Amino acid sequence: MSLSPYVRILGRGPGRSRSLTQQEAAEAMALILSGEAAPEAVGALLMLMRYRGETPGEVAGFVEAARATLPAWPGPAPALDWPSYAAGRTRGLPWFLLSARLAALAGAPVLLHGWNSHQQAAASVRAALSAAGIPEARSMQEAADLIAAQGIAYLPLEAFAPRLLDLLRLREILGLRSAVNTVLRVLNPALAPAAVQGVFHPPYRELQADACDLLGQPAMTVLKGGGGEFERHPSKDIALFGTRNGTRWEASAPALEADHRRLADAQPDPADLARLWSGELTDPFATAIVLGTAELALETCGRAPGLAAEAWSTRHTAHAA
């Protein structure tokens, strides 16, 4: 089979081209993931979508096809899906890792998954996992086991979807992001009932929310976050998009404090994550990031307000659910 019919739909020229339907997008991605599509056609398809701007239906169709190739999640679904695929050129430490750990501690088991390129070593999510106290899994089975034991795990993309990683890394050849970046944020490989997502460019908030609506995602919150991750800036009002009870939803959240520090102002030191968690480091701004982000994540899971602060105050004696 060939991708040419789908490339033709997207690229026939002014007045004749159109976006793919959700079904067409699913068919095209299934062909790509099968390995049968010519690499030139894959690049053409992704770059035409990039030029036109991917639609919610295209993202949802790609996700449907990608999910069909994944191993089944081996056990109960985690409460919360937390993707981490931002390039992170403009961010400091990934404080959101502590937010994810705090959400797990508050009783919402978390699957973090991702792959991060272009990050300076000190701010890399993968490099900071140990300092944040989050175990890294080597397979879906190991991730499920870690979540059962500790409430949280990080699953790298290459450990469960190496072909999607190949597609993501086409950015290194083509020089531009593609719809695959959006697909991975929406993928939710364990089909968790709640999901949180970050974006760097604001228009992608509604795109991802609409795609999740098409996919029937019960609960999801997406925001413009630090470096493109799900991480709220505590001194800014934020717009929230997503789904609640399987339908589209929008809201806003006011600033938490007056400190207008940039997230990347300080030279990042991953050890500060461990120091903040242990109490050795006192940093009200970083603490506000952690608690504010965790509160939004827990709200997405349907948990009561104030649970993040409660879990933070008892973190040294409590255990993850």
Rank of each mutant, 00 (worst) to 15 (best):
M1D: 08
G13Y: 02
G15H: 07
R16P: 01
A30R: 10
E36G: 06
A38T: 04
E40P: 02
A41Q: 14
G43M: 06
G43F: 07
M47W: 03
R50D: 06
R52I: 05
G61N: 09
F62D: 05
V63M: 07
V63W: 03
R67I: 14
P71R: 15
W82V: 10
R89K: 14
G92D: 05
P94F: 12
G114N: 08
Q119A: 11
S124T: 09
V125R: 04
S130P: 01
G133E: 12
R138W: 15
M140C: 09
Q141H: 04
D145R: 03
D145Y: 00
A148K: 14
A149S: 10
Q150H: 14
G151C: 08
L157C: 11
E158W: 13
L187G: 09
P189E: 10
P193G: 10
H201D: 15
H201G: 07
L207Y: 00
G216N: 12
G216K: 12
Q217R: 15
M220V: 09
P234R: 09
G242M: 04
R244N: 07
T247W: 14
E250N: 09
A251T: 09
A251F: 06
A255M: 12
D259Q: 01
R261P: 05
R261N: 13
A266K: 00
Q267A: 14
D269L: 15
L273F: 13
L273A: 12
L273Q: 09
R275V: 05
L276K: 15
W277K: 04
W277A: 06
L281E: 10
T282R: 15
T287A: 07
T287F: 01
A288Y: 10
E295S: 00
A297L: 05
A297E: 03
L298V: 01
G302F: 15
A308V: 06
A311V: 15
T317S: 08
T317Q: 09
H319R: 15
